[in-house]
Design a protein around this nucleic acid. Structure first.
Ligand SMILES: [Mn+2]
Ligand SMILES: [Mn+2]
Ligand SMILES: [Mn+2]
Ligand SMILES: [Mn+2]
Lengths: 222, 222
DNA sequence: AGTCGCGTTTTGACAACTCAAAATATAGAA
DNA sequence: TTCTATATTTTGAGTTGTCAAAACGCGACT
């Protein structure tokens, strides 16, 4: 039985929730429900079904976690999603700000044949347009990033490697400010009272953004 | 309310059935059910719902026909299907024999944005890899073809323009015999007793095919 | 006119997914 | 320990799409 789009969406949401979580605690039902965009009771019902299929481990009143089978399936959905995004940007010429919505639908219907063809055309890329790592065909996902503009050292050159938000307006803003993955900059100051982070791009432009935004721009020291 | 994949499939099947039908008689339920791959009763139920939505005209015990609204919707689905096939062959480099299955799924999820981008990349093609006409964005479909290898005059040069069958093996066979759209040949003889048609390709090869197959290869005099 | 056969429709049931709202569990405050 | 706020689960119901099989309509043939 191949999983329905619905099942794939639950597994993917669960994977994302688990990844953006320091501890390895179970994901609470409410969070999953919100992520999938469904009423709490609906998530409970669905999770019980997923547990019966062996795709998740479920502890009533505590939360859910992907089983290894579920994690592998989620990784394959993520692989399709990200390869599609890379394809739409590199081959079709769409903007990195608008490909997410299309990928969200296409990820459930592209055949293995087509996805591997895309992968080959793109030269087996390691990351998608947002810097998100592309899982391998066997379901292995590369390790996550470490620092963001909110946590990295001040006054040293860093390179944007990944943006963990898909909002089109935010992505367009970053593009306009030369903050797409690959661009260099340094953090000049942080002001917790003002809730802001002050940046200087390699072109010399000075930009101030909020801490919420800063935490979504991941970097590596360059 | 945007139509579901299911509705799109019914409308498309109906469009095909109406097109491959000399008279403008209603399409019988049984034929529609077979085309969609569903039990007869299921088709009846669905058609009544479609009639309530104004997408078809339904006469109990007689058959169904697309309304103008339904015809337009069907044409848009067909447009997406055929542009996707052309894209997969021209840009992605897939075989004309294998793109139909992928297009069958993708046609229901590609966004307008993406489909128009593909259309532009392809230079606004008039036909897909099988020679099927691509409807315009407003739902206009070009006129059909006239002759096939079964009905055209003997001993004159003709060019293959369209193949009205999506079976991968058949398509691969045609490709191997230089009978893809664009290739020239002439019909040397027909033998109704043997149920066969004898061809000679422009390269001089002689091929004999059955009348069923011959009727699916449409041509124009060249 | 009467009967037969075949296609069509109806019926009853089911699977997958969803929601609103009532019931309940659990953890933390009093 | 008892109460209470909040998250979770349960319940009852609805939607969409499907099937098998019984019932039915209709044209064809006697
Ligand atoms: Mn995305
Ligand atoms: Mn991405
Ligand atoms: Mn096709
Ligand atoms: Mn085609």
């Amino acid at each position: 039985m191949l999983p329905s789009s619905t099942v794939e969406n639950y597994l993917k949401a669960l994977h994302q929730a688990e990844t953006s979580r320091e501890d390895k605690a179970l994901v609470p039902m409410g969070q999953l429900a919100t992520a999938v965009g469904v009423a709490p009771g609906t998530a409970t019902t669905m999770v019980k079904a997923l547990a019966d299929s062996g795709l998740v481990e479920y502890e009533p009143y505590v939360g859910v976690r992907l089983s290894s089978a579920g994690a592998k399936l989620a990784a394959l959905v993520l692989r399709r999603h990200r390869l599609i995004e890379q394809f739409l940007v590199e081959i079709v010429g769409m903007s990195w700000a608008e490909v997410h919505e299309d990928a969200e639908q296409l990820e459930h219907v592209v055949s293995d044949r087509l996805i591997e063809r895309m992968d080959a055309m793109l030269g087996h890329p390691a990351v998608d347009p947002h810097g998100d790592p592309i899982p391998t065909p066997d379901g292995t996902v590369a390790a996550p990033d470490y620092h963001s503009l909110l946590t990295c050292p001040l006054h040293i050159a860093v390179t944007v490697t990944r943006v963990t938000d898909q909002d089109a307006n935010f992505l367009r803003f970053l593009e306009k400010q030369d903050l797409k993955p690959g661009h260099s900059l340094e953090v000049e100051a942080r002001d917790s009272a003002a809730d802001s982070v002050q940046l200087r791009t390699s072109a010399g432009h000075q930009i101030t953004i909020g801490t919420q935004a800063a935490s979504k721009v991941l970097i590596e020291v360059s």
